[in-house]
């Protein structure tokens, strides 16, 4: 499991996150929510080793993630970044194949089994049709799905997603969520995967997350099952708006409705 203990991190001039404690079991999806600028993406960066940890620890199955070499960490953690400023000349397949980087030698030569992994994750994410298209020609949503495929090609137990649905239309939001649920929830016994997903859509969070972490101004203000965190009281204070939380009669999950 993933264990984050009293994590403080940020940039030299300014710490962004203060004393964060989180835990995540295999088979779980943890949603990280909070107002803009709260430090959600910083959390992703800290776990994936892009920024250094100032204090505290991050461990996966008791392995200190901050002590790993870059390629070792990339075999445990993959990240789906936001699709922005991508180099436009790469083809879809080339993008996905970069997910195999932590397993390749310096020449980047793909083996037969690498090719099979690439093929299968592209089928899984419905991106095979973009194999030979240059990503500059693709829409934001299509690029986003390729980045998801690239992360899956890394075959890591821990998957981090930074606002993966923000570019997607409703159809692909649902597809992505289904894919995540299948990967994390249904194949639980097989793969022991876990995911952390930064998300703004609280209603989607209510439907998919097993746990929710609410970060406000760099501090963890609530952490627990969706029903406990997604309350009118907690959310109202965090986002500084009046809102109602009602129960969906069909699914029993919460529906968050801001008052305008």
């Amino acid at each position: 499991m993933l264990n984050i203990r009293s994590l403080t991190c940020g940039y030299e001039e300014k710490m962004i996150l203060h004393s964060i404690d989180l835990a995540l079991q295999p088979g779980q999806i943890l949603a990280v929510i909070g107002p803009n600028g709260a430090g959600k993406s910083t959390l992703i960066k800290a776990i994936s080793g892009v920024i250094p940890v100032d204090q505290g620890s991050i461990t996966w199955n008791d392995v200190d993630l901050t002590a790993l070499r870059t390629e070792e960490r990339a075999r445990l953690i993959s990240v789906v970044p936001q699709a922005r400023n991508l180099p436009s000349g790469f083809t879809g397949r080339e993008v996905v194949s970069l997910g195999r980087t932590p397993y390749l030698n310096w020449l980047g030569q793909l083996s037969q089994s690498d090719e099979e992994v690439i093929e299968s994750v592209m089928a899984q994410t419905g991106t095979l049709e973009f194999s030979d298209r240059r990503i500059g020609e693709l829409s934001g949503g299509e690029q986003q799905r390729l980045l998801l495929a690239r992360a899956l090609a890394q075959q890591t137990p821990l998957l981090l997603l930074d606002e993966p649905t923000s570019h997607l239309d409703l159809q692909y939001q649902v597809q992505l969520i289904h894919l995540l649920q299948r990967l994390i929830h249904e194949e639980r016994a097989l793969s022991d995967k876990a995911a952390i997903i930064v998300m703004h859509d609280l209603n989607l969070v209510a439907r998919v997350a097993d746990a929710v972490a609410l970060i406000v101004e760099g501090h963890l203000v609530a952490f627990g099952p969706p029903q406990e965190v997604l309350t009118a009281n907690i959310l109202g204070r965090a986002y500084q708006v009046m809102l109602d939380v009602v129960s969906d009669p069909a699914t029993g999950s919460s529906i968050i409705v801001p008052r305008l």
Binding site: E71, A74, R75, Q154
Partner: peptide, 24 residues
């Protein structure tokens, strides 16, 4: 010449390159 592949990955930026396992 031996840095050809890592330079490919680097085109996605330092952050993504590191997350893909490249010692940037």
């Amino acid at each position: 010449l031996v840095n050809g592949y890592p330079l490919n990955v680097l085109q996605f930026g330092d952050e993504q390159a590191r997350q893909l396992g490249v010692n940037v």
